[in-house]
């Protein structure tokens, strides 16, 4: 076999590029990875408690991105402007709340409709996974049909700003201009970078403490470690599962806000790629492990950026998934390995 094609894109120029671009690639990779990590928390928590992958989590995130876009249109109108981060902080705070609430509501809906009835009936895991995939498609298509749906209620004119061209890319009318704050190497770190990475770390720390220190957090860990024993302690497993979906939804909503600040556009299938990446991040860090989810996200984001610089943008997903396979070959349970249950944290 001739693999020389793999290296054709590596010329001395691109390697020196990588060297030259090391700081910007790493920092923007971390910022991207922080978003992956926040979404990954939802996958990893649901897995920890139910040993099931919530395939609909990508749509939970996607609804959050639309909530952000809608809030911006609602308060700002549709005239496109470009503004700095600080002049829009108030608006972004409202966006954050709206996105977290929207994503949490969708997550709770998925739990109530696709999971709880099947769990109660003792359905096999495969059936529940398929129900989750069904929920994922349904939610994505509902978003894709939103202009028709408001048409049925005669609201098309009132809501046209929010629903027009439902299957197309939907852009937030405000694009955020990042401002450089200080330099690392030859890269000016921007306020948007700091906000993204900082927000992810703060959320992570908060969640970590919640799971470790509070009564409800202990309830979540107990169900993850031994559901039957947890029931004997008086833990209401249904409530714990609900809280787990709720937290996953809140984190996905926060991720959606950061995503819209960074990327600015969304569409009805925007969740898919980010969902797959976030799930990869969760597996990479050790599925069921909260800190692992964030670490996996950061590693994945950086790896993608380095891969894109080395081999070209088309290869960045290949690099990311090859890295996943390599990590799993060495550590089959992921970088940090432990499950939510076993983790002391």
């Amino acid at each position: 076999m001739d693999f020389s094609f793999l290296f054709q894109s590596i010329s001395p120029l691109t390697i020196s590029d990588l060297f030259h671009q090391f700081a910007p690639l790493t920092i923007t990779g971390l910022a991207l990875g922080a978003i992956y990590g926040l979404i990954a928390l939802g996958y990893t928590m649901v897995y920890g408690v139910l040993q099931l992958i919530n395939f609909a989590h990508s749509e939970v995130f996607m609804f959050g991105t639309f909530a952000v876009a809608w809030v911006v249109v609602f308060f700002h109108g549709t005239s496109s402007t470009s503004q700095g981060l600080f002049s829009t902080l108030g608006l972004l705070a409202i966006c954050l709340v709206a996105a977290m609430l929207t994503s949490a509501a969708i997550a709770l809906l998925v739990e109530r409709v696709a999971y709880r009835p099947l769990i109660r009936k003792g359905a096999p895991k495969l059936i529940i996974l398929i129900a989750a995939i069904g929920a994922s498609f349904s939610l994505s298509e509902i978003m894709g049909l939103r202009d028709q749906i408001v048409g049925w209620f005669g609201l098309k004119d009132n809501l046209s700003n929010y629903v027009s061209q439902a299957r197309n890319v939907y852009s937030s009318p405000i694009t955020i201009d990042p401002h450089g704050l200080f330099s690392i190497g030859n890269y000016r770190v921007t306020d948007v970078d700091l906000l993204t990475i900082g927000a992810a770390i703060v959320m992570m720390a908060f969640l970590d403490q919640f799971v470790r220190r509070t009564r409800l957090g202990r309830g979540i860990r107990s169900v993850a470690q031994d559901p039957e024993s947890a029931a004997l302690m008086g833990v209401n497993a249904t409530r714990v599962v609900q809280v787990t979906f709720l937290i996953g939804g809140l984190m996905a909503g926060a991720a959606a806000t950061l995503y819209m600040i960074r990327i600015g556009t969304t569409r009805q299938n925007a969740g898919f790629i980010f969902g797959v990446k976030a799930f990869t991040a969760a597996v990479m860090g050790g599925i069921g492990n909260l800190r692992g989810a964030l670490l996996g996200g950061l590693v994945l984001g950086v790896a993608e950026n380095w891969g894109a610089a080395l081999f070209g943008t088309n290869w960045k997903d290949v690099v990311a998934f090859v890295l996943l396979v390599l990590i799993l070959l060495v550590r089959p349970t992921g970088i940090l390995g432990e499950s939510l249950g076993k983790a002391r944290a």
Binding site: S222, D226, A343
Partner: peptide, 26 residues
């Protein structure tokens, strides 16, 4: 009604103190 189950059902990733706190969950 509380139970000490067959096979003990201790939460392996929790400390002794956390396990005892779980006993008082309700």
């Amino acid at each position: 009604i509380s139970q000490s189950p067959e096979g003990r059902g201790v939460f392996p990733g929790m400390t002794v103190r956390e396990n005892l706190d779980m006993g008082a969950y309700a």
